[in-house]
Structure formats: C-alpha cells, structure tokens
Simulated assay, not measured.
Amino acid sequence: MKYKSLYIIKNIVAALVVTMFFSCKNNFGDVQKVGVLQNQPVGEAENIDLKYTEYEDSVVKLLANLKSPNLLDYSNRPFKFTEFPEGIELIIYGDGNEETVILADYAVSYAETDIIDLQGNVIIATQDKDTLFTEQLYYNQQLEWVFTNNPFYFKRTTGFTKGNGFDSDKNFEKFQMHETGGDFELDN
C-alpha cells in the first residue's frame, strides 16, 4: 500500500510539472507592450482652447488664452510633462486688456521644474509692438524669466537688436545679451 501511495503521488507531481511546463509560454511581446503603454500619453486633447481666468470682487477677468491643435499629457512619467507637438498660440492679457501674443511650432511644459520650452519659429509680440523672433526660447514660470542660447532678432519701436542668446525678465526690462550680432534668418 505504501508503494502504491508513493506511486500515485509521483504521478500527480509529474502531471502537475508537465502541465506547468506546457502552460508556460513566451510572453516577451506582452512585456514589451506594457513598456510601450507606459510611454504613451495618459491623456490627449485636440483643438484645445483654454482660458485662464481670475475671479476677484465678483468679476471674472481673462488672464490668458491658450490654443493648440494637439495636447499630449505625460503625467504618467517620472518626470511629468505636457507636450504640444503641433504648436501653440498663447495670448496674455494685461491689466488694460493689452495683449501679448506668443507663437511656437512646438512646446513642452515640465511640471516639476515649471520650465516651458518653445521651439520652432518662436515669436513674441507685445502690446507695445515689440517683437522677438528666435528658434528656441525657455520660460521659467517661477522666476518669470525668459532665456535662450540661440540667435534672436528683437524688433522694438526704437530700433532692433540681434545676437546669440539672452536672459530677460518677462517684460524685457532687464534684458542682457550673451553675444551681439550673429546670423539670423527671418522667414516671411
């Protein structure tokens, strides 16, 4: 009887091992798909028209209007960011409803550093008719600071400045160039 029980247990164990062996399959493709899904945006939006407002003394005041054909939300990544792969148009309204218009072919906003990276045909046109042209521009939202290392052309009502790289406050009052002159092509 003892041998018969041992024989039955061995057969059960062998059957389980064979079943487990044949039930295992190569799921490397599934593992790769999980990695791809983690790299996909957690949210997408098309034809966005966001209005940033402020409510004060029973009055709603429009502060800014952001328009973009496409927004991709990567807040599922360790270093969270929002991407605008088809560009942006941002209108910022001043106290007297003056408008500053910001255009770029591509933009990305990093949540943790509060840095906005604008790329491709970047144009900033202020209410005072001052206009800045460059290929890449960074904006630090915390410090309200604008900077680039790329060539730029800055047309003001009093003349123009061109150079390579600058740092400035958001109103271009504390403007410091890195290099004067430089090559810059202005597309029509």
Score class of each variant (00 low, 15 high):
residue 1 M to E: 06
residue 2 K to E: 14
residue 11 N to P: 01
residue 12 I to A: 02
residue 13 V to E: 08
residue 14 A to S: 11
residue 16 L to Q: 04
residue 19 T to W: 11
residue 20 M to H: 10
residue 20 M to K: 02
residue 25 K to L: 00
residue 25 K to H: 04
residue 27 N to H: 07
residue 30 D to T: 13
residue 31 V to E: 10
residue 33 K to F: 02
residue 36 V to Y: 14
residue 39 N to S: 07
residue 44 E to Y: 11
residue 45 A to C: 07
residue 46 E to R: 15
residue 48 I to G: 02
residue 48 I to S: 01
residue 50 L to M: 14
residue 52 Y to L: 12
residue 56 E to F: 13
residue 62 L to C: 06
residue 64 A to L: 04
residue 64 A to V: 00
residue 65 N to Y: 08
residue 69 P to A: 03
residue 71 L to F: 07
residue 73 D to F: 06
residue 79 F to R: 09
residue 82 T to C: 07
residue 85 P to Q: 03
residue 87 G to W: 04
residue 87 G to E: 06
residue 92 I to R: 10
residue 92 I to E: 14
residue 92 I to L: 06
residue 95 D to F: 10
residue 96 G to I: 13
residue 99 E to P: 07
residue 100 T to Y: 11
residue 101 V to W: 15
residue 103 L to P: 06
residue 105 D to T: 11
residue 108 V to N: 07
residue 108 V to F: 07
residue 110 Y to Q: 03
residue 110 Y to S: 03
residue 115 I to S: 10
residue 116 I to S: 11
residue 117 D to C: 10
residue 119 Q to K: 15
residue 119 Q to P: 13
residue 124 I to T: 02
residue 125 A to K: 15
residue 126 T to P: 05
residue 129 K to H: 09
residue 131 T to E: 07
residue 133 F to W: 08
residue 134 T to Y: 09
residue 139 Y to P: 08
residue 140 N to R: 09
residue 142 Q to C: 09
residue 142 Q to L: 15
residue 143 L to Y: 00
residue 147 F to G: 08
residue 149 N to H: 11
residue 151 P to K: 05
residue 151 P to T: 09
residue 152 F to H: 00
residue 156 R to M: 08
residue 156 R to T: 00
residue 158 T to V: 08
residue 162 K to F: 08
residue 163 G to P: 07
residue 165 G to Y: 01
residue 169 D to N: 02
residue 172 F to M: 03
residue 174 K to E: 14
residue 178 H to A: 12
residue 180 T to F: 11
residue 180 T to Y: 13
residue 181 G to D: 05
residue 182 G to P: 01
residue 183 D to T: 13
residue 188 N to R: 10
residue 188 N to E: 15
